[in-house]
Simulated scan of single mutants.
Amino acid sequence: MTTAQFGLDTFGDVTEDANGKPVSHAEAIRNVVEQAVLAEQVGVQFFGIGEHHTDDMPMPAADIVLATIAGRTEDIRLGSAVTVLSSDDPVRVYQRFATLNAVSNGRAEVTLGRGSSIESFPLFGYDLADYEELFEEKTNLFAELMKGEPVTWHGKTRPALDNQDVVPHTGDFPVWVGVGGSPQSVVRAAHYGFSLMLAIIGGHPKRFAPYSQLFQQALKQFGRDPLPVGVHSPGHVAATDEQAQREFWPYYRDVITRVGRTRGFATPTEASYAHEVGPHGALYVGSPETVAQKIAANLRVLQATRFDLKYGIGGLPHESLMTTIELYGNAVIPRVRELLATPAAGMLPASK
């Protein structure tokens, strides 16, 4: 636990200016670069960008933004959060992140996902009826590509490869599989020897503890060494709990209400929000001390050694996001390390 890693994830959400008007897509993307530069300055160890293709999250080419960030940073690791492998070509995904690994001098990572946001499927001509098969086949091919040897592969979802050398060869880089609640995905990650990233966006985080246990058991059954488990969850940090909750609530309410129309989420209420930001919810919203206590407790419960805070939400101003990043790096992360170094500290009370 004392060697835990801490990151920040963003979906490139469009922010609002001082007049409450949405900024342009170009400005939103440039702001992400500035946020990543600050993240390194305050000691954050990883910066991830999640692929989306919507007007409020205009981030369809995260690898290009990550390469730009690589040119302005030196140490922070850079990767996706997530790459929707099901609607992409595994060869191109491998090539893009192998290239990022080169330009960043070995700092690249990739998190592969089936796609909880499915706007990329019709965009690139994929049928949602093939949702499971697409991810299974493409993950299988990606695992072959990661071996760094000529690839022979055939399947239904793309043309076959016959002893094909896929370049560039830039060394290994970490591969994670993002999981939002599917045991099959947990076992799949273990089968291919990829690390597990638990995307926990609602409910009590401890309900994901069986997935961590299943992952390590599956690794053992497949004859693999233990691999890291990470946690990706949304949050917002401000000087006080009251300020953080007040700032985050209206944007969270509006975004979840809008997204919920197509994804089946319940409309947030002030009561449900209060539960999610409380000790047994999935939102890390509060002062540095409150957020640190919750991170430390849930890392223990989930037997995880990586925590990525998904900061920001549509509309929340860029200046507020910069404050969150600064507090997360300068106050939250050091405090979590203190809590994890004390065996009896950082534990949440048992839920009733």
Rank of each mutant, 00 (worst) to 15 (best):
P168L: 02
A67K: 00
Q5H: 15
V301N: 13
N298H: 15
G346Y: 04
A350L: 12
T257W: 00
Y131G: 08
R258M: 08
R300I: 08
Y211Q: 14
P122A: 09
R72G: 07
V166D: 05
T73W: 05
A26V: 12
L8Y: 05
G125P: 12
T257L: 00
I256Q: 07
L85C: 09
T54M: 14
G278F: 06
G79F: 05
K206P: 02
A62M: 11
P279I: 01
I313Q: 09
P22C: 04
L196D: 06
A297K: 09
G223A: 12
S287N: 12
A62C: 12
A129V: 13
Q243F: 03
F11V: 01
R114K: 15
G178V: 08
H191W: 08
T323G: 10
A39I: 02
V33F: 02
L100K: 00
E74M: 08
T240H: 10
L128V: 08
K21R: 15
V91L: 06
E132P: 03
Q164L: 13
S87N: 13
L227K: 14
F222G: 10
S233D: 04
T99F: 12
K206N: 10
D9F: 14
F222V: 02
T2L: 14
G171N: 01
D89E: 13
E144T: 00
V44K: 02
V186Y: 03
V255M: 11
T305K: 14
A67W: 01
P250C: 00
Q95D: 07
G155T: 06
P228N: 08
S272Q: 13
N163G: 09
D165E: 13
A102T: 07
P288A: 07
M146N: 10
Y328D: 06
G113Y: 00
V332Y: 00
V151W: 05
T2P: 09
P288E: 03
R224T: 01
A70C: 08
S182W: 08
A61Y: 09
M347Y: 14
D254F: 05
I200L: 07
L321E: 14
G264V: 00
P288T: 04
S351K: 12
E149H: 11
E242R: 12
G314T: 14
N330P: 01
V103A: 02
V231K: 07
M197T: 01
L123G: 03
S212W: 10
Y126V: 02
A271I: 06
